[in-house]
Nucleic acid binder design. Sequence first.
DNA 1: GTGAAAGCGCTAACAT
DNA 2: ATGTTAGCGCTTTCAC
Lengths: 337, 337
Amino acid sequence: MSENIKPVTIKDVAKELGIHHVTVSRALRNTGSLKAETRELIKKTANELGYKPNRLARNFRNKKSDVLAVVVPDLRPYFFSKYISDFIEVAQKEGYSVMIFQSSEKADLEKEIIDSLIGYRVMGVVASVAKDTVHENHFDVLKQEQIPYVFFDRAPEQTKASQILVNNFQGAYDAVTAMLKSGKKRIAYISTNYEHKIFQDRLLGYKQALKDNGLPYLEELVVKGGFFMKDGFDVTKTLMALKEKPDGILAVRDEIGIGAIKYLKENGIRIPEDVAVIGFDNDPMGVACEPELTTVDQSVPSMVEGTFDLLLRQIKNNSLNFEKKLIEPKIIFRGSV
Amino acid sequence: MSENIKPVTIKDVAKELGIHHVTVSRALRNTGSLKAETRELIKKTANELGYKPNRLARNFRNKKSDVLAVVVPDLRPYFFSKYISDFIEVAQKEGYSVMIFQSSEKADLEKEIIDSLIGYRVMGVVASVAKDTVHENHFDVLKQEQIPYVFFDRAPEQTKASQILVNNFQGAYDAVTAMLKSGKKRIAYISTNYEHKIFQDRLLGYKQALKDNGLPYLEELVVKGGFFMKDGFDVTKTLMALKEKPDGILAVRDEIGIGAIKYLKENGIRIPEDVAVIGFDNDPMGVACEPELTTVDQSVPSMVEGTFDLLLRQIKNNSLNFEKKLIEPKIIFRGSV
DNA sequence: GTGAAAGCGCTAACAT
DNA sequence: ATGTTAGCGCTTTCAC
C-alpha cells in the first residue's frame, strides 16, 4: 500500500511563484492579457513542477468533455476496425480523445451505453447500430440532450440524425453489372439476416441490375445466412445444390464471399470460369485467398472524413443536423470475376 | 442555433420532492440509510425527470474516473483488434469505460498520449508499445502518478511495470520442432525489423530448436522485413533465390506467412510438400488462404483475462505491481505444415 | 496586467 | 433517517 501523492494543481504553481492561481490558469491557456515574461515563467515553473492539467476538473467546469464516442456492434470485422482506426487518428489530430463501446449486436446494451455516454457529456457520438436496432429509437435521447451524433454504415430506419453511407444500391448494381458483362447469366445474392437498410439497398441494386439487363429475379438465387466465412461456405453449398446453379455470386461481405470461394474450390468449381464471386468491404482477407476476391470498396477514409464533417459542423454550430451523405463505392477488380 | 437545455441534476430531483439533494445522492447510489420507500420514490422521480448522473462531476469529485485506457500502435492488425474487442467487453462488464489511443508506431505521440491520460485520471492503462519504444521510458510518469499500468505483447525493455506475454520462446520452439518432425531440414525465419523482446524471444526459440535437433544456425536463413503481407512476399523471394533453399518458414506474423505462401504458390512451389509455413497470431486471414496457415495462437482471451487480473489487483489494492505473466502458446495445425 | 469571488454537480464527514 | 457544510480544480466575471 503506497502513500497517495497529490497531483500538482494550478494553486501549487501559483504558490510557488507567489501569484494568484487564476493568473496561472490564464497563462497556461494562452488567454487573458498578461506580460509575456510572466506567462513564460509560469509555463516553465508548471513544467518543472510536473503540472498536468486536471481534465476532470476542466471538463466538469466547462460542462463538456473533449471526448468523442464511437459505438459499434463489434470491433473485429475489418470494416469496423479500419473505420475506428482512421477515426481515432483524425480525432487525435483534432484534439479529441475517443471512447469506444461495443454493443455486441445487442440493442439493450446499446441503450445502456448511450446513457453512459450522456453521463460523460461527450461532445459527439458516432454509431453503427446493432443487428436488432432497426425500428428502435433509443438514440433519440441524444437529441434531447443536444449531443450531436452521426450514424455510419448501419442506422436505425426512422432516424432523424445525420448519417453517412456508401451508395449501396450502386455498389451492388455495379457488381452485378460487372459479372453480367463478363458473360455471367445467373447471379446469386448472399446476404445476412440483418435488416438494415444497407442490406436492403444492396438487394435493390442487385434487382435493378438484373432488370436493366433483361434478366428475371429468381427467389431461389437470393439466400440469407450469418455474418461470417463459415456462413458463406454453408449457404454456397445450398446454392450449388440447385438444379440450375448460379454462375456468379454477390456477397454482402467479403468474409462471406471468401466462404463461398472456399466451398467452390473444395468442390472443384473453377473461379471465375464456372462461378464468379464479388464481395463488399475491401477486407485484406480478400487478398489472402486465391483467386483474390473482387470487392466493392466502401472507401473508409472518405467515410471518416465525411463523418467528421457532419459531426464537427454540429459541434461548432452548437446545433443538430439531419443530413445524409452518400459516398460512391468503387469496385476493386481482382481475380474472382 | 438551438437554445441550451440544462441537464437535470440531483438538486432538481430534490426540489421536485422537497427534500435535500444529498438524500437524492444517497438514494441513487444505494448508500447511507434511508427509508426504502423514500429511496424508491426518489429513484422513480429521477427516472421520470430524465436524470442522468453527471459523471464529469462525480469523477471530478472522486478524483478518479471509471475509465481504463488502452494504447496500441495500430488498431487494425487482427491481434490488436481482437485484444481490444475482448478487453472492452470485459471492461464494460466490470463497469469501466474504455478510451483507445493509437500511437501509430510513434514514440513521441505515445508520450503525448500518456500526458493526456494522466489528465483524465484514468484508473488504469494497458499498452502495447510503438516500434521505437524499446529503450525509452516515457511510461514511467504513470508510476509517478500512481496510475496502474500493464504492458501486453510489446513492452519497453527496462520497464518496471507488470506485463503479460505469450511464451514466445516456446511458441517459436514448438513451431520449428513441428516442421522438423514433419521431415523439414532447412527452416528459415522471417521477422520484422522491430526490436521488441517478443521478436527476440521468438528468434531464441528458433535457434534453440535447431540446436536441440543438431541443426546449424544459418544467418542466410534469417531475414527481416516489414510488418505486412507484401513484406512476407518480398522476403520469401529473397529466401527462395538462395542456392540452398529452405524447406520450411517460420514467420513472426500470420500476414507475413501468408505473403510467403502467396509467393511460393505463384512460383509453383508446393505447400507443405516443398516448403512448410507457420505464422503467429491465429489471424482468421490464415483460414482464407490455401492451404490454410498453421499458426502459433496467442490465446487472446487468456491474455485479456490476465491483463485484468494484473490491472484490477493494482487498482483495488491501490498499489503498483511489477509482475510478469506468461501465457503458454498453442500451435493450431492447419494445412501449411 | 493581475486579483478576488463565485460556482459547476457531486459526495464525505459531520450534524441533528 | 435526513439535513448541513464544505470543497474537489478549474474558469468566468467582475473589480482594481
